[in-house]
Simulated scan of single mutants.
Amino acid sequence: MIKLYYMKGGNNFGDILSKDIVAKVSGQDVVHAKAYRADIISTGSLLGKVQNTKLRRAFFRMLKPTYVWGTGIISDGGSVSKNNLVICALRGRLSFGRFDLNSDVALGDPALLCSKLFPYKKDKKAGKFLVTPHLHDKECEAWIDRIEKLLGEEVEVCNLSQDVDYILEKIANAKGVITSAMHPLIVAHSYRTPVVWVDVGSVVILGGNYKFEDYYSVLDIPLQKITKDDLLEGMVSKENIEDQLEKSYVGLERLRSLQDGLIASFPDSLRKK
């Protein structure tokens, strides 16, 4: 059984997805653990919280390694210490640059593995535009209403507290995804579903754009986004959204390279024998 650190509490899509991905790759059951007791830290922006537990980790882990696989740093800043962490993979080049590491560390968010680990047969019928607001986006109704007016009856809103398998299948079969959360965006890239991020500001997204820029740094495509303010002020048209969606595809060769790197970098000691 693997102990995974994530932000427990409520139905957080990213955390539950992280648990499912680690379980699939490792072939083992996965349970929640506090940062100083965890075997591994995966998706999310959890490195800052984990680094602050160095002394407790040394005591509770009895010198056993704590692996970092695909997580990142939440905000800009200076260099940071590994603090006895074994870093196998990091979310992006910005997080990588904060450490003194060699070039063997894999890059990419583990949610990019979804299409490989949880394949869905594409529905031949054209899907709808799927809107997935961040769970903490309490004022999302206004910008969603604007999206619905722009795109008409082709819009379906998906609550990220729903079953993970349901959300994955919806994203895989969507005509396009419009989201104010990070992990639906990454999942859409994995299934090669067109996607655009709605920047709703730092009130909802801690650390601002940093984690998105970190993630996009490994994709070889520019960050595709529209802002909530521009939507509400009528500065975004249907054509703007469609153009952003069209430019959002991650190259298939690049996607497979990131996926292979993540799979290969998963710690062997945590794989089922």
Rank of each mutant, 00 (worst) to 15 (best):
L223M: 14
F13Q: 05
K125F: 13
K228C: 11
V157T: 11
S269K: 07
R61Q: 10
A126D: 11
D145E: 14
K272D: 11
G152L: 06
N240Q: 07
E154H: 11
L4R: 03
T66Q: 10
L135I: 15
C158T: 12
K149W: 06
T71P: 02
V31Y: 10
K225I: 08
K273N: 15
I171L: 10
F266H: 01
P194Q: 07
G176C: 10
P110Y: 04
D123W: 02
L17D: 06
K238Q: 14
N209W: 12
L17M: 09
R61W: 00
D104T: 02
P267T: 02
S18C: 11
V86F: 04
G78K: 01
P133H: 11
I178D: 06
G261P: 03
L85P: 00
D230N: 13
A142D: 12
S26E: 01
V68Q: 01
S42R: 04
G27T: 06
S248Q: 05
V236S: 08
N240Y: 06
D145R: 11
L255S: 06
V218Y: 00
K19E: 12
A106S: 06
V131E: 02
R256G: 14
D145L: 15
V218A: 12
A181F: 04
K116C: 13
D220N: 15
E154Q: 13
L55P: 02
I147E: 03
G14Q: 02
I74E: 07
L47W: 00
S269G: 09
S45K: 01
L135C: 15
S95R: 00
T179A: 14
R192I: 09
E141H: 13
F266P: 01
L85R: 02
K211N: 07
Y120F: 15
Y249K: 14
E213R: 12
G72T: 01
G97M: 05
L47F: 03
I263C: 09
F13E: 03
I74Q: 08
L85S: 06
L231W: 00
D268S: 14
Q259N: 04
K121H: 07
V50Y: 01
D29H: 10
E213A: 15
V105D: 00
S42Q: 03
V86H: 04
V131S: 07
D15M: 10
V198E: 05
D100Y: 05
V31C: 14
K128Q: 10
E154S: 13
A106D: 00
C158L: 14
E253L: 15
P133F: 14
A142N: 10
G48W: 01
G97R: 00
V196F: 03
G234Q: 02
T71H: 01
L245A: 11
R93G: 08
K64S: 13
I171A: 11
I241M: 11
K273F: 11
P267L: 08
D220K: 15
A23S: 13
